[in-house]
Protein backbone atom coordinates (compact mmCIF):
# COMPACT_ATOMS: atom_id res chain seq x y z
CA UNK A 1 0.00 0.00 0.00
CA UNK A 2 1.29 3.51 -0.76
CA UNK A 3 0.05 7.02 -0.15
CA UNK A 4 -1.21 7.43 -3.72
CA UNK A 5 -3.29 4.26 -3.66
CA UNK A 6 -4.64 5.06 -0.18
CA UNK A 7 -5.52 8.60 -1.27
CA UNK A 8 -7.17 7.14 -4.36
CA UNK A 9 -9.26 4.72 -2.32
CA UNK A 10 -10.24 7.49 0.10
CA UNK A 11 -11.20 9.70 -2.84
CA UNK A 12 -13.43 6.90 -4.09
CA UNK A 13 -15.00 6.50 -0.63
CA UNK A 14 -15.59 10.26 -0.41
CA UNK A 15 -17.22 10.19 -3.84
CA UNK A 16 -19.68 7.49 -2.72
CA UNK A 17 -20.42 9.28 0.57
CA UNK A 18 -20.98 12.61 -1.23
CA UNK A 19 -23.33 10.90 -3.68
CA UNK A 20 -25.31 9.41 -0.78
CA UNK A 21 -25.40 12.83 0.90
CA UNK A 22 -26.51 14.47 -2.35
CA UNK A 23 -29.32 11.93 -2.84
CA UNK A 24 -30.49 12.30 0.75
CA UNK A 25 -30.32 16.11 0.83
CA UNK A 26 -31.95 16.79 -2.52
CA UNK A 27 -34.54 14.00 -2.13
CA UNK A 28 -34.24 13.28 -5.84
CA UNK A 29 -31.89 11.64 -8.31
CA UNK A 30 -32.28 14.37 -10.93
CA UNK A 31 -28.84 14.96 -12.43
CA UNK A 32 -27.52 11.57 -11.29
CA UNK A 33 -27.06 8.80 -13.82
CA UNK A 34 -28.46 5.45 -12.65
CA UNK A 35 -26.70 3.82 -15.61
CA UNK A 36 -23.30 4.89 -14.27
CA UNK A 37 -24.11 3.34 -10.91
CA UNK A 38 -25.24 0.13 -12.58
CA UNK A 39 -22.09 -0.01 -14.68
CA UNK A 40 -19.99 0.47 -11.54
CA UNK A 41 -21.85 -2.37 -9.82
CA UNK A 42 -21.03 -4.65 -12.78
CA UNK A 43 -17.40 -3.46 -12.51
CA UNK A 44 -17.21 -4.27 -8.79
CA UNK A 45 -18.98 -7.61 -9.03
CA UNK A 46 -16.80 -8.83 -11.91
CA UNK A 47 -13.58 -7.45 -10.40
CA UNK A 48 -13.99 -8.62 -6.82
CA UNK A 49 -14.72 -12.29 -7.48
CA UNK A 50 -11.38 -12.99 -5.82
CA UNK A 51 -13.10 -12.02 -2.56
CA UNK A 52 -13.74 -15.73 -2.19
CA UNK A 53 -10.44 -17.04 -3.53
CA UNK A 54 -7.62 -14.72 -2.41
CA UNK A 55 -7.34 -12.88 0.89
CA UNK A 56 -5.04 -9.85 0.53
CA UNK A 57 -5.90 -7.93 3.70
CA UNK A 58 -8.81 -6.98 5.91
CA UNK A 59 -8.74 -3.53 4.33
CA UNK A 60 -8.91 -4.97 0.81
CA UNK A 61 -11.77 -7.34 1.62
CA UNK A 62 -13.68 -4.78 3.64
CA UNK A 63 -13.45 -2.13 0.89
CA UNK A 64 -14.62 -4.58 -1.78
CA UNK A 65 -17.69 -5.47 0.25
CA UNK A 66 -18.28 -1.79 1.06
CA UNK A 67 -18.14 -0.75 -2.61
CA UNK A 68 -20.54 -3.50 -3.69
CA UNK A 69 -22.92 -2.87 -0.80
CA UNK A 70 -23.01 0.94 -1.18
CA UNK A 71 -23.46 0.84 -4.95
CA UNK A 72 -26.20 -1.79 -4.62
CA UNK A 73 -27.92 0.41 -2.04
CA UNK A 74 -27.73 3.50 -4.27
CA UNK A 75 -29.21 1.62 -7.23
CA UNK A 76 -31.96 0.15 -5.02
CA UNK A 77 -32.71 3.63 -3.64
CA UNK A 78 -33.05 5.28 -7.07
CA UNK A 79 -34.96 2.38 -8.63
CA UNK A 80 -37.37 1.39 -5.88
CA UNK A 81 -37.50 3.98 -3.12
CA UNK A 82 -39.77 7.01 -3.23
CA UNK A 83 -39.34 9.92 -3.96
CA UNK A 84 -36.40 8.89 -6.12
CA UNK A 85 -38.31 6.30 -8.12
CA UNK A 86 -41.06 8.61 -9.34
CA UNK A 87 -38.64 11.50 -9.92
CA UNK A 88 -36.05 9.51 -11.85
CA UNK A 89 -36.26 10.50 -15.48
CA UNK A 90 -34.92 7.60 -17.55
CA UNK A 91 -35.19 9.66 -20.73
CA UNK A 92 -32.49 11.98 -19.35
CA UNK A 93 -30.20 9.03 -18.68
CA UNK A 94 -30.53 7.50 -22.10
CA UNK A 95 -27.00 7.79 -23.45
CA UNK A 96 -25.02 4.58 -23.87
CA UNK A 97 -27.30 1.60 -23.40
CA UNK A 98 -25.53 -0.69 -20.94
CA UNK A 99 -25.13 -3.44 -23.54
CA UNK A 100 -23.18 -1.09 -25.84
CA UNK A 101 -20.59 -0.69 -23.08
CA UNK A 102 -20.66 -4.26 -21.83
CA UNK A 103 -20.41 -6.05 -25.17
CA UNK A 104 -17.25 -4.35 -26.56
CA UNK A 105 -15.50 -4.62 -23.18
CA UNK A 106 -16.38 -8.31 -22.98
CA UNK A 107 -15.05 -8.93 -26.48
CA UNK A 108 -11.88 -6.95 -25.80
CA UNK A 109 -11.33 -8.76 -22.48
CA UNK A 110 -11.77 -12.16 -24.10
CA UNK A 111 -9.33 -11.18 -26.85
CA UNK A 112 -6.77 -9.75 -24.39
CA UNK A 113 -6.90 -12.85 -22.21
CA UNK A 114 -6.58 -15.11 -25.25
CA UNK A 115 -3.46 -13.20 -26.26
CA UNK A 116 -2.10 -13.31 -22.71
CA UNK A 117 -3.02 -16.97 -22.37
CA UNK A 118 -4.85 -16.27 -19.12
CA UNK A 119 -8.08 -18.13 -19.69
CA UNK A 120 -9.46 -18.53 -16.21
CA UNK A 121 -12.96 -17.00 -15.95
CA UNK A 122 -11.85 -14.91 -12.96
CA UNK A 123 -9.04 -13.35 -15.02
CA UNK A 124 -11.30 -12.71 -18.01
CA UNK A 125 -13.98 -11.08 -15.82
CA UNK A 126 -11.32 -9.09 -13.98
CA UNK A 127 -9.94 -7.74 -17.28
CA UNK A 128 -13.51 -7.04 -18.43
CA UNK A 129 -14.05 -4.94 -15.27
CA UNK A 130 -10.88 -2.96 -15.95
CA UNK A 131 -12.13 -1.97 -19.41
CA UNK A 132 -15.72 -1.40 -18.31
CA UNK A 133 -14.72 0.93 -15.50
CA UNK A 134 -13.14 3.29 -18.02
CA UNK A 135 -16.56 3.73 -19.67
CA UNK A 136 -18.71 3.64 -16.54
CA UNK A 137 -18.66 7.42 -16.01
CA UNK A 138 -19.78 8.26 -19.58
CA UNK A 139 -23.55 8.19 -18.90
CA UNK A 140 -23.04 10.46 -15.87
CA UNK A 141 -20.95 12.93 -17.91
CA UNK A 142 -23.74 13.07 -20.51
CA UNK A 143 -26.36 13.68 -17.82
CA UNK A 144 -24.20 16.57 -16.56
CA UNK A 145 -24.06 17.96 -20.10
CA UNK A 146 -27.86 17.63 -20.39
CA UNK A 147 -28.50 19.65 -17.24
CA UNK A 148 -25.55 21.99 -18.00
CA UNK A 149 -25.52 23.60 -14.56
CA UNK A 150 -23.98 21.11 -12.13
CA UNK A 151 -25.34 21.07 -8.59
CA UNK A 152 -22.62 21.51 -5.96
CA UNK A 153 -22.58 18.06 -4.36
CA UNK A 154 -22.97 16.38 -7.75
CA UNK A 155 -19.83 18.23 -8.87
CA UNK A 156 -17.89 16.94 -5.86
CA UNK A 157 -19.17 13.39 -6.42
CA UNK A 158 -17.89 13.36 -10.02
CA UNK A 159 -14.65 15.14 -9.11
CA UNK A 160 -13.64 12.63 -6.40
CA UNK A 161 -14.72 9.73 -8.61
CA UNK A 162 -12.40 10.98 -11.33
CA UNK A 163 -9.59 11.81 -8.90
CA UNK A 164 -9.53 8.25 -7.52
CA UNK A 165 -8.29 6.64 -10.74
CA UNK A 166 -5.98 9.59 -11.43
CA UNK A 167 -4.33 8.91 -8.06
CA UNK A 168 -4.11 5.23 -9.00
CA UNK A 169 -1.96 6.23 -11.97
CA UNK A 170 0.50 7.78 -9.50
CA UNK A 171 0.26 4.57 -7.47
CA UNK A 172 1.28 2.52 -10.55
CA UNK A 173 4.24 4.82 -11.18
CA UNK A 174 5.24 4.49 -7.53
CA UNK A 175 4.89 0.70 -7.50
CA UNK A 176 6.81 0.18 -10.75
CA UNK A 177 9.56 2.34 -9.33
CA UNK A 178 9.81 0.95 -5.80
CA UNK A 179 8.43 -2.59 -5.90
CA UNK A 180 11.05 -4.95 -7.23
CA UNK A 181 8.72 -7.80 -8.19
CA UNK A 182 5.81 -5.66 -9.37
CA UNK A 183 4.55 -7.08 -12.67
CA UNK A 184 3.26 -4.48 -15.10
CA UNK A 185 -0.23 -4.79 -16.51
CA UNK A 186 -0.35 -2.41 -19.46
CA UNK A 187 -4.06 -3.02 -19.99
CA UNK A 188 -4.67 -1.54 -16.53
CA UNK A 189 -2.50 1.49 -17.25
CA UNK A 190 -4.10 2.24 -20.62
CA UNK A 191 -7.61 1.74 -19.26
CA UNK A 192 -6.85 3.93 -16.23
CA UNK A 193 -5.42 6.64 -18.50
CA UNK A 194 -8.49 6.59 -20.76
CA UNK A 195 -10.76 6.66 -17.70
CA UNK A 196 -8.98 9.67 -16.22
CA UNK A 197 -8.77 11.43 -19.59
CA UNK A 198 -12.57 11.31 -19.85
CA UNK A 199 -12.74 13.55 -16.78
CA UNK A 200 -10.20 16.12 -17.97
CA UNK A 201 -12.64 18.68 -19.30
CA UNK A 202 -14.88 18.26 -16.25
CA UNK A 203 -11.82 18.75 -14.01
CA UNK A 204 -11.05 21.95 -15.89
CA UNK A 205 -14.52 23.47 -15.42
CA UNK A 206 -14.66 22.19 -11.82
CA UNK A 207 -11.36 23.80 -10.84
CA UNK A 208 -12.17 27.05 -12.66
CA UNK A 209 -15.58 27.27 -10.96
CA UNK A 210 -14.01 26.61 -7.56
CA UNK A 211 -11.21 29.08 -8.17
CA UNK A 212 -13.39 31.96 -9.40
CA UNK A 213 -16.40 30.99 -7.35
CA UNK A 214 -19.76 30.79 -9.02
CA UNK A 215 -21.71 27.92 -10.49
CA UNK A 216 -20.15 24.95 -12.25
CA UNK A 217 -21.67 25.12 -15.72
CA UNK A 218 -20.57 22.87 -18.57
CA UNK A 219 -20.62 24.15 -22.14
CA UNK A 220 -23.19 22.55 -24.43
Amino acid sequence: MNIFRFAGDMSHVVSILVLLLRLRSSKSAVGISLKTQELFLIVFVTRYLDLFTTFYSLYNSFMKVAYIASTTYIIWMIRFQEPYKSKYDASQDSFLHIKFAVAPCAGLALFACLVKGELSPIDILWTFSIFLEALAIVPQLFVLQRYREVENLTGHYVFFLGAYRGLYILNWVYRSYYEQFYRHNWLVYVSGAVQTALYVDFFYYYVVSKYYGGKLTLPT
Binding site: N60, Y168, N171, R175, E179, F181, Y182, R183, N185, V188
Partner: peptide, 10 residues
Amino acid sequence: GAAAAAKDEL
Protein backbone atom coordinates in the same frame (compact mmCIF):
# COMPACT_ATOMS: atom_id res chain seq x y z
CA GLY B 1 6.49 -13.26 -4.55
CA ALA B 2 5.70 -11.27 -7.64
CA ALA B 3 2.80 -9.02 -6.69
CA ALA B 4 0.14 -10.07 -9.17
CA ALA B 5 -0.01 -6.93 -11.31
CA ALA B 6 -2.73 -4.72 -9.91
CA LYS B 7 -4.72 -7.75 -8.71
CA ASP B 8 -4.11 -6.75 -5.10
CA GLU B 9 -5.64 -3.34 -5.77
CA LEU B 10 -9.26 -2.21 -5.62
